[in-house]
Each structure stands twice: as C-alpha cells, then as structure tokens.
C-alpha cells in the first residue's frame, strides 16, 4: 500500500503540564512498525495531547487556554530521527474545506506543497476517492455529502499524504453506529502496513482495529497495555475483527471495566 517501508516510533520521557498541573511526565510510548496502536482513556486524561505531541503539533496551541502548555519530548524513529514530516493526521472533525471539491480536498497536501499539477498525484487521489467508495463525486462540494461520506473524504485525504505514520484522533466518533462500523472496516484495510496511532473512547473500536491497546489513566497519566497481539500469548485474527466474536465481546467487557476504574480515579483526583 505505502511506498515507504513501515517505521516504528518511540516517544521517550514525554511531559505535559497545563496551567501548573502535570498531565503526564516521563511517559514512554512505542508505536510498532506497521501496526495499529490504540489509545483509550477517560476524557481529559491527555490522549489528544499525546497524539499532538507525536504529530509535532505542540507549539501551535493557538488559543492556548490559560497558562503555559509545555510539551518536551520528541517522537523519533528507530534511527533516532524525528518523525515530523512523515506523519499524516486525521481529526474528529473532517476538516474539509467547504469551498473545495472532494478532489480538491483530497489534494490539499499536494496543493500546499505545489505538487497538485503532477498527473500521477492527481491519478492517485482519484484512485483513493474510488477506494473510499466515492467514485463519481469528485467534483462535489462537501456540503452535498453526508457526515459519513465527508469522513471518507477525510480518510482519502489522509491516505493521499502517503506517509508511513498515521495519527487519528477519534476519527469516527461523530458518526452513527452503522456508518462508523463500515468506516472502521475500510480504514483497517486501507491503513494496513502503516504505523498508526488511533485515539478513541470506544473500546469496541479499539478491539476491532488495534494490534496493541493502551489504556491511559491517572494524573499524572500512565499507560497500561491492555492488548498486544505480538506478546506471544494473544491469539486474535487480523483487523478488522468481527465485533460479534465471543472473545472480542469478553475483552470489550473487560476494557469497559478498566475504563470505568480509570474514570473514577480521575474523578477522585479532581
């Protein structure tokens, strides 16, 4: 799928304080190469901040929000090189430009880099639009599309970047259950062989898509590994997994309990 070889990402001794309170410090996060790593946890625990840290989006906190935000710790690959510039980012909002067509939105990255006239790149963008099931709608404006279709365009735009690392911040949480289900399947297939960090609040989504699942909890926050298909003990099919599978359902119940505990800890601390 990708033109670049999959790369692993290591984030070492990450630290974030917000308005004097330490959200996390000395936090390590490993994203294994070509695997989907899911990050679960209660709201406000710092999942999105951690993802933004990996994305290198940290000194851009426009709006700021009262009192210094500092985020030392830089994500690096196996060779110790910073991953900035090799990351594609997908947010909860589709972030489509309302004045640009579907094709124009998928070509946003190339356009910003002045590459959008390259016929190969345009061809690839059209191909990706077909892959997310929107063939024939290339010229339409986002306002003519449903929420699910808009998020499909956002997925195509993310893949059009053709980066080895993909960071997704609750990309499907604004969608209805059926649309979300279809998009998870699509994403799992299209993201194969890329190194993915997926922040979600939905344990079932994490279990359908993740090779590795971390639960983030506490203050300062810690990471607990809830699932790792590479630990030699876990036997699970490759994503996207069947949500009706008894094993998956049992794990979902277990994850829900863990998350409820994590939330209660957060509530006690504040």
């Amino acid at each position: 799928m990708t033109t670049a070889a999959p790369i692993a990402v290591h984030l070492h001794a990450a630290r974030l304080s917000y308005g004097g309170a330490v959200v996390f410090e000395d936090l390590d996060l490993d994203l294994p190469a070509g695997r989907i790593t899911c990050l679960l946890g209660p709201s406000g625990v710092g999942k999105t901040s951690l993802l933004r840290l990996v994305a290198g989006l940290t000194d851009n906190d426009s709006g700021g929000g009262g009192g210094g935000t500092e985020l030392p710790g830089t994500a690096a690959d196996q060779g110790g090189r910073a991953v900035q510039g090799r990351v594609a980012y997908m947010a909860q909002q589709d972030l489509l430009l309302p004045w640009a067509s579907v094709l124009g939105n998928v070509l946003l990255g190339p356009r910003l880099r002045g590459e959008h006239r390259d016929p190969d790149i345009v061809e690839r963008a059209r191909d990706l639009i077909a892959q997310v099931g929107l063939k024939g709608r290339e010229a339409e404006l986002p306002s003519r599309l449903s929420g699910g279709m808009r998020q499909r365009v956002a997925l195509a735009r993310t893949l059009a970047e053709d980066r080895p690392i993909v960071l997704m911040d609750e990309p499907f949480s604004a969608l209805d259950a059926i649309t979300r289900f279809a998009l998870q399947e699509l994403a799992a297939n299209l993201l194969a062989e890329r190194t993915v960090l997926l922040v979600t609040h939905d344990p079932l989504e994490a279990l359908r898509l993740g090779h590795r699942i971390h639960v983030m909890s506490g203050s300062p926050a810690r990471l607990e590994t809830a699932l790792d298909v590479d630990d030699g003990r876990t036997e699970l099919p490759a994503p996207p997994r069947d949500p009706a599978d008894a094993d998956i359902l049992a794990r979902q119940a277990d994850l829900l309990k863990r998350l409820a505990r994590a939330r209660d800890t957060m509530a006690e601390l504040t």
Partner: peptide, 15 residues
C-alpha cells in the same frame, strides 16, 4: 482560520 485546518496544513508541510 479554523485551528484544525492550520494543524492539518502543518502536518502536510505547507509553507
């Protein structure tokens, strides 16, 4: 400008 768009542009490497 929507800060989300600016974040997106930053990861895309736009000047």
């Amino acid at each position: 400008t929507d800060p989300g768009w600016l974040d997106l542009a930053r990861t895309m490497g736009g000047g």
